[in-house]
């Protein structure tokens, strides 16, 4: 889990510098936002000079899935103090969740299992910060004609394609894609929000009959 994060941190750092962020800001984002796909998205939005409110909204939408993890862990973390809950919530990434959720279901003693989440979360945090810093330092050395911004798009493809499992997920992808093209001329990159909402709606509508059956 930890080693797998290194190349993405490197690519993020390079993309952030190429998008025109200051090195300090690029590094700060890795700890302020601390979410891989949201960070990649931010590099694209900053490069396109998107207004701030829409960047925040886009990050909010892409990170909404973390509410699922929060809901799944809420019961198990309930005895902890608010400080512990806040710390673990900050460290709650896709990777940390995937690493601990099975352990939490097994018969690990309830008094110690939050340490598993802390270990996975903090380990990933530490490696991620180092990789992002290295990427930022590297970013200044890489010429623009390498088209490394495309690595961000490829990362998104690699995330989306394995999620296409049924009619509803395919529909969500096609509708979001079509709307992103049709609405591309809208000001302020509103096309991203429009496409995301349209895709989610298409997915939910087609998903419903199967759920009810």
């Amino acid at each position: 889990m930890l080693a797998g994060a290194i190349p993405f941190g490197l690519i993020y750092g390079v993309l952030a510098v190429k998008a025109g962020m200051s090195p300090l800001l690029a590094i700060a984002i890795a700890s302020i936002v601390f979410a891989g796909s949201a960070q990649f998205m931010l590099t694209q939005l900053v490069a396109a000079a998107t207004p701030g409110a829409l960047m925040v909204l886009s990050v909010f939408v892409i990170n909404l899935r973390h509410a699922l993890y929060s809901a799944a862990l809420a019961d198990k973390l309930q005895p902890l103090s608010l400080r512990w809950k806040a710390l673990l919530a900050y460290l709650l990434t896709d990777e940390a969740y995937a690493a601990v959720i099975r352990r939490f279901d097994s018969n690990v003693s309830p008094g110690t299992r939050h340490w598993f989440l802390f270990g996975a979360g903090f380990g990933l945090w530490f490696v991620w910060q180092l990789a992002c810093v290295a990427g930022v330092l590297l970013g200044g050395q890489i010429p623009a004609h390498w088209s490394l911004d495309f690595a961000g798009t490829l990362t998104f493809i690699a995330i989306v394609v394995p999620l296409l499992r049924d009619r509803a997920t395919w529909a969500a992808m096609f509708v979001a894609g079509l709307v992103s093209l049709l609405a591309f001329a809208l000001p302020y990159k509103l096309s991203i929000i429009a496409a995301a909402l349209a895709g989610m709606t298409a997915g939910v509508v087609l998903d419903h009959p199967r759920e009810a059956a």
Binding site: S37, M41, Q44, S58, V61, I62, L64, R65, A67, L68, A71, F150, G152, T153, F156, I157, I159, V160, L163, L164, A168, T169, A172, M173, V175, A176, G177, L178, V179, S180, L181, F184, S191, I192, A195, A196, L197, A198, G199, M200, A202, G203, V204, D207, H208, E211
Partner: peptide, 24 residues
């Protein structure tokens, strides 16, 4: 309904970034 909707968030939001970069 919220849980069902969340399943489609990464697909829809990331596709919205991918298609324009590939086609436009």
């Amino acid at each position: 309904w919220f849980e069902r909707m969340l399943r489609f968030v990464p697909i829809a939001a990331l596709t919205a970034l991918v298609w324009p970069d590939l086609l436009l």
